[in-house]
Amino acid sequence: MTGKATTPAPMTPVPVPQPESDRYWEGLRRSEIWVRRCEGCGKPYFYPRDICPHCASAKTQWFRASGRGVIHTYAIVHRAPHPGFGDKVPYVVAIVELEEGVRVPTNIVGVEPEPTKIKIGSRVVPVFEKLTDTITLLKFKPA
């Protein structure tokens, strides 16, 4: 052994897909956004689960969303909530409303993390950011 031991940079939290969400995460790996809609009441919903949270119907289907949306709200994180984000602050967290009618928690990238540069209601498009070999995160940038 030569040199000194290095401590790997702490990792941000990695999602653990559940049986009902595997298809969502497989979709993101291919740069596709798959969400669910109820065949009973017709309403879309996020996050994926087998039973509709609007009407409890078990008849639900996956459909591919366009990825176009608007910023419903955002915040700018200056104090890292977890060691994995220590070298990422300041960063922008947000809730984006997709044009299909569901809201997703996410990050806005490709903008200066300044309140004057980011507007609620402004249009965004998806960015697929590979986190690990199996996990890709859905983020957004200004349209």
Binding site: P13, V16, P17, V77, H82, V93, I95, V104, P105, L137
Partner: peptide, 18 residues
Amino acid sequence: AQYESPHGIMGPPITYAL
């Protein structure tokens, strides 16, 4: 843990800020 934490949406200061 699947949908918010990976984006750094963790803890009350951040969620309430949103």
